[in-house]
């Protein structure tokens, strides 16, 4: 179907073949989250080396939007500096998949899209608190994650 504002080729493709799908054993960061509306769950795994994301994987059940967003998010942050990842925002993620319109048109489906980013922010938040003792960065991230949608 052409012109579908959500189910584009790219989203369907990612939903069938998600990128970076799997687990990392003993990952430096492991964040689990769930969407209480539909019961979708994701697990995000990150390894950090030299302040960079050296490895990233995700795993879980989700709709096409959730799977596509997790895929794109993991692709976008791989190899990136933690300070950049900290600043990563929802517009960057949504525009990569042409889903910015969801913010306005679908308060329900936006949660599917941003579960990935919420997990990332909470995951890095815990990392800043536990490993880096950086409470200022942590506080900001925590607030951002809590206010994403």
């Amino acid at each position: 179907m052409s012109g579908d504002p959500i189910y584009t080729e790219m989203i369907i493709e990612y939903s069938r073949n998600p990128s970076n799908f799997g687990k990392i054993a003993d990952a430096h960061i492991h964040q689990h989250d769930a969407n209480p509306l539909c019961g979708d769950t994701i697990d995000l795994y990150l390894n950090i080396e030299d302040n960079k994301i050296s490895e990233v994987k995700f795993d879980g059940h989700g709709c096409a939007i959730c799977m596509a967003c997790c895929s794109v998010l993991t692709e976008m942050i791989k190899g990136k500096n933690l300070d950049d990842v900290k600043k990563f925002d929802k517009d960057e993620l949504l525009s990569e998949l042409g889903l910015q319109h969801l913010v306005k048109t679908s308060p329900v489906r936006i949660k599917c899209a941003l579960l990935s980013l919420k997990s990332l922010k909470f995951g890095i938040y815990s990392y800043f608190v536990d490993k880096m003792k950086d409470s200022e960065s942590a506080g900001n991230l925590n607030e951002e994650a809590a206010n994403l949608y």
Binding site: I6, Y7, S15, C38, D40, H61, G62, C63, A64, I65, C66, S106, R109, C112
Partner: peptide
């Protein structure tokens, strides 16, 4: 294997 959310939206 289509997720119910996607079925619902479509």
């Amino acid at each position: 294997s289509v997720h119910p959310h996607d079925v619902g939206t479509i």
